[in-house]
Design a binder for these strands. Sequence first.
DNA 1: AAAAATACACAAAAAATTTATGACGGGTCT
DNA 2: AGACCCGTCATAAATTTTTTGTGTATTTTT
Lengths: 227, 227
Amino acid sequence: MIYMLEDEEGIRNFVIYALKSSGFEAEGFETPPALYEAIEEELPELLLLDRMLPEEDGLEVLKKLRSAPGTRKLPVIMLTAKGTELDKVEGLDNGADDYIAKPFGTMELISRIKALLRRTYGSSADTEKLSLGGITVYPSKHEVFADGEKVNLTLKEYDLLLMLMRNRGQVFSRDSLLREIWGYDFAGESRTVDVHVRTLRQKLGDCGELIETIRGVGYKAGDGSID
Amino acid sequence: MIYMLEDEEGIRNFVIYALKSSGFEAEGFETPPALYEAIEEELPELLLLDRMLPEEDGLEVLKKLRSAPGTRKLPVIMLTAKGTELDKVEGLDNGADDYIAKPFGTMELISRIKALLRRTYGSSADTEKLSLGGITVYPSKHEVFADGEKVNLTLKEYDLLLMLMRNRGQVFSRDSLLREIWGYDFAGESRTVDVHVRTLRQKLGDCGELIETIRGVGYKAGDGSID
DNA sequence: AAAAATACACAAAAAATTTATGACGGGTCT
DNA sequence: AGACCCGTCATAAATTTTTTGTGTATTTTT
């Protein structure tokens, strides 16, 4: 969720629209009190802050946010018509993470937002995860959780789960799984996959049921409806 | 320590001088290879990267840095004469944290550097010391403590530990560790890593268990849950 | 509906792979 | 020379993977 504090309705609507088009959740506010109230309700992931406001200066808002424990680390990008170097320095030195002078392009704004979010919330390693029902997989950590409990999987079990989770709802034949995960190319009869599916289900406990057997065809994880 | 990659000597010297005047340690490099070499030696806190370089494009340098585990999180500010919105978007979307178009003012540059350092290291707490369980590393002093006891590590052991501690929870394959720590052109056995992990674990005593073996994949430090 | 056939689940042993360990020799620095 | 770091190897230990056999559920045939 991204919040924006900006008194001019035109700019505000334009930016909020642009953000939503890029897949962000976004909400705009006209006055500092309205923003404060919203922050009490829900802390946004990032704040776009106009520098020049009729009542309370944007800089004052920033200082307040920075001095309150809950919002001390809130990523803030200042947006403003005041584009002199001194203005930028003032904004940044008071705790803003970025400072964009109007007029700015939508694409640049989006990119800067993404860059800041990336830096703040650690783009891949921590965030990157796959979930299905009670199962969560963190690929870069090679960790799997089922109903909150950490599960220790062997390599093949892990590969198998990842394969199924990455293509949820899709049915894989034993042969295609052997080819993809084992790299084998032979078509000979083998119960190898079955055995791994079994151990995998066992280790996943209740979540094991999310791996379905499609009789006569193969296996799949989830039916696409569950998130 | 801040590094700068910039082919024009005039700008380079000017910026390095400005940085030093502001109390930063800084060093400039003329070519990508020189930068890479320096990074092998010491990882800087931040990198200023010129976009247009005669040999290798700045963007290529950025991509390389972002794809290597050791420098994936290195804060990077791009500095460049190319100031169109598309250029900025391109730089930011490829992993740069900020993008400043020339000509830029020294004060703005310093402020942006400070803002990024603030965001990255949270008021410089992280640079001073890294902790995981009973292990504490002081990178600036090259000192390591395990359960309060000082531990004497050899260079490779230290590099290995630092690598794992800086990316806790992340799994590293032997190959990627060899590439990052031993250098991209190291031709030796990947079992070499095992041996160093062993000596490292030994020296860390009980804390050695924090370095986990992920069978079939590699090693990692901490499971993300421990702080 | 009963019988036969098929496909899968389960269990445990056997085989294969991967990692830990101990030891050695070359190299470097003091 | 002595101490130490580094990379390699052989072997032991640990764990995973595959094979194999048996039981059970489901589908097909009669």
